[in-house]
């Protein structure tokens, strides 16, 4: 991985058990245009109703335990990607959200206890290669678990789609 996987941005802190209906509600499932999908990111998270108006490209979402629980919908990842959220750092992820993020090439990082370390609007530097997070506002550092092996290969390829295309070209 390269510098592409080092992100600097403002933190948005949300709580535990943010489920897929809160990230992207089921009533919007028929939408297929990612730009339309992007308008509904985090709409059902209490206090985040105007997130899509205030988010800046490169901002970093910081969540508590079990982020992305519930449905298998990939929209939950896509809606964040199309708001130019750089990465999600969470104390833990629900399994299918985690898989979907890897397979869609969306940087994620697990850092136990992270929500205790920072506040919304803190300036962060996240290194998805090493798993290190620097809080530039508070001058603190924490260490998370970076991806490795096949997961890392898929992520660095930009997701499963590009990973497979590359793979298939090699076969041909």
């Amino acid at each position: 991985m390269t510098d592409e996987f080092v992100f600097k941005g403002r933190a948005w802190v949300v709580g535990d058990d943010i489920d897929t209906d809160m990230i992207y509600h089921g009533s919007y499932l028929p939408l297929t245009d990612p730009k339309e999908m992007a308008k509904h990111a985090l709409e059902y998270v209490p206090g985040m109703e105007d997130f899509t108006e205030r988010v800046q490209p490169g901002d970093i979402l910081v969540a508590g335990k079990n982020f992305g629980s519930g449905s298998s919908r990939e929209h939950a990842v896509i809606t964040l990607q199309y708001n130019d959220v750089a990465a999600v750092v969470a104390e833990s992820f629900s399994r299918i959200f985690y898989r979907n993020a890897v397979n869609l090439g969306f940087p994620i990082l697990e850092v136990p206890g992270i929500t205790r370390e920072l506040d919304t609007s803190d300036e962060l530097e996240v290194d998805a290669n090493t798993g290190r997070i620097c809080n530039l506002t508070k001058g603190t550092e924490v260490q998370g678990t970076p991806l490795s092996g096949l997961e890392k290969e898929i992520m660095t390829a930009g997701g499963l789609f590009n990973f497979l295309k590359k793979d298939m070209q090699t076969v041909e």
């Binding site: 399994r95 299918i96 499963l160």
Partner: peptide, 9 residues
Amino acid sequence: GIGRTEAAA
């Protein structure tokens, strides 16, 4: 359970 992209894969 899996996601859509991986179902396509």
